Computed example of a mutant assay.
Amino acid sequence: MTAHILLVEDEVKLARFIELELDSEGYQVTVAHDGMSGLSLARESEPDLAILDWMLPGLTGVEFCRRLRATGSKVPVILLTARDEVGDRVAGLDAGADDYVVKPFSIEELLARIRAHLRRTQELDEDVLQFEDLTLNRRTREVYRGQRAIDLTAKEFDLLEYLLSHPRQVYTRDQILENVWGYDFMGDSNIIEVYIRYLRLKLEERSEKRLIHTVRGVGYALREQ
């Protein structure tokens, strides 16, 4: 799948040059020339990676990063900056940037940084399942609803992971029993209802909208209301 890159750069000629280079590499590119427009695009289009100039009109690249991270976005961010002082680099990284490239830079270096971050993201994606504001990490066994960490038992985690593996798909009780509890499970089949209730209580603890829905006469599905 073609990666979508958001480029926010107020120098129009430089932005156009980078856009053409990215386009020739096969990336889908969206361009903004000021911080506020770029932030709106980042929230609406959910790019795979963002490239930001440090000194943007309306909203600096550093403030852009802070606001973007405050929404829970994990999109990799590369800052383009003429600032090469250690304090400036630390400020950018502390604000949520993943990397920085100092101007003037070679386009080959920027492309290499982009490939590295996209590759790292793809590797992480295999471990991370996400739907709406719900995130589950298979490797660390951590679950989040937005920024809120959710403590699950081992079986609650396994059940949620199964439902998250194919959002919107309806799973029958037999499918859930076989894949979560095992084909040789000899206990009470009502165990599914019990654990669905446990999950709902934890996922909706702060009155968040319901994600696990009962499909009457069939089973359960993870989907929007």
Rank of each mutant, 00 (worst) to 15 (best):
V170F: 01
A154C: 01
K155T: 15
L159E: 12
L199F: 14
T153D: 12
D158A: 14
L199Q: 09
Y195F: 14
F185R: 06
D188G: 04
Q169F: 09
F157I: 15
Y183G: 03
E193P: 10
Y183S: 05
T153R: 12
I191S: 05
Y195K: 11
E178Q: 12
I176C: 05
H166Q: 12
Q175I: 05
N179Q: 15
E156W: 02
G187K: 10
R200N: 15
R197E: 15
K155A: 13
L164C: 06
L164I: 09
V194R: 04
N190Y: 03
Y198L: 13
Y171W: 14
I176R: 01
V170Y: 08
Y171T: 00
Q169V: 10
R168W: 06
D188P: 14
V180S: 03
Y198N: 14
N190Q: 12
Y162C: 06
E193C: 01
E161F: 03
F185P: 05
L159I: 06
P167F: 09
E178V: 03
I192G: 01
R168S: 12
Q175A: 11
V180N: 01
E156S: 10
R168Q: 02
R168K: 06
I191T: 12
R197V: 00
E193Y: 13
Y171L: 05
W181V: 02
E161L: 11
H166K: 09
A154W: 01
A154M: 03
R173S: 13
L177S: 02
Y198M: 08
W181C: 07
D188I: 06
S165H: 13
V170L: 07
F185C: 00
I196F: 10
M186Q: 15
Y195N: 13
H166F: 12
V180K: 00
V194S: 00
E178R: 09
Y183L: 03
T172C: 02
L163P: 05
D174V: 08
V194E: 08
E161H: 00
Y183A: 13
D174N: 12
A154S: 11
F185A: 07
T153Q: 12
E161S: 12
V180R: 00
L159F: 10
L199K: 13
Y171M: 00
G187Y: 05
I176W: 04
P167D: 03
F185W: 13
A154D: 15
L164E: 09
R200W: 07
L160N: 13
F157W: 10
I192W: 07
V194D: 01
K155R: 13
L164G: 04
I196W: 12
S189G: 07
D184E: 15
R197G: 09
V170M: 11
L163V: 09
E161Y: 01
L163T: 04
E193K: 12
L160K: 02
R173M: 08
L164Q: 04
I191W: 06
N190L: 13
N179M: 06
L163C: 14
L199W: 14
G187L: 06
K155W: 10
F157M: 07
N179I: 03
I192Q: 00
L163S: 06
L177G: 09
N190S: 15
N179S: 14
V170T: 14
L163G: 07
M186G: 10
S165V: 03
